[in-house]
Structures are given as structure tokens and as C-alpha cells.
Amino acid sequence: MEILMILTVGVLFTVATYMILSKSMLRVIIGVVILSHGAHLLFLTLSGLKQGAPPLLGEEASAYTDPLPQALILTAIVIGFGITAFMLVLAYRTYKAHKTDNLDELRGTEDE
């Protein structure tokens, strides 16, 4: 299972890198979102997938699953959600102001 998860993470990082390097604003943002999913999945996998009973009072088991990564990933997902919403609005405003979503046309300074 771990191998499969790690491979998925690898695919997600690859796709995200490809998307972030493209020239359309929206694709870049989708790339960032996929990158965040990759990072969260990596966290879940590296800290050990299900290793025993849920860590609840009253559960009698020899091993318990570590609850910390899930709490942390939840926090990271919420943060990522907020930032994605902000990024989309900012991208829309940029598009309205510049009439283009091609990042190649959104660079340089007046001096050049």
C-alpha cells in the first residue's frame, strides 16, 4: 500500500510541476492545488498508514494509529482552501485588468 501511495504522490508532484510551468494563469493555480494534495498525501503516507486501532479511550488493542498527521493535514487543507479561493479571485482581477491570462504577457518592467 505504501508503495502505491508513494507512486501516487510522485505522479501528483509531476503533474503539478508541469501545470505550474505552463503559461496560463488558471493552469498554474490548478497546479498549485494539485501540489498541495501531493504534499498532504505524502504526509499521510510517511507518518505511517493505518497501523492499528483508532486511538480512542476504551479501544483495547496492541497498537494504535497515530492521530497527529490527520489533524495536521486537516489544518493544512483548510489553509490551502483559503489560499486557493484568494488566488482565484486575484487571478480573475488580474485577468480583468490586463485582458489576458497568459503569464508571458504579464512580465517585464516599463524600462525594458
Binding site: 493555480i29 498549485v32 504526509f43 493544512a76 488566488m87 486575484l90 487571478a91 490586463h98
Partner: peptide, 21 residues
């Protein structure tokens, strides 16, 4: 300002994701 802040946001978010990793 809009176009430069967009780049600022994206670069910082990407590095934050690597922080999580």
C-alpha cells in the same frame, strides 16, 4: 500591482507546499 502580487502569491504558496512536504 495585481500581476506582481499574483506571482508573489503563487511562489509563496508553492514554497509553503514544499514546507508541508
Amino acid at each position: 500591482q495585481l500581476r506582481e502580487s499574483l506571482k508573489y502569491v503563487i511562489i509563496n504558496t508553492v514554497s509553503s507546499m514544499f514546507f508541508v512536504a
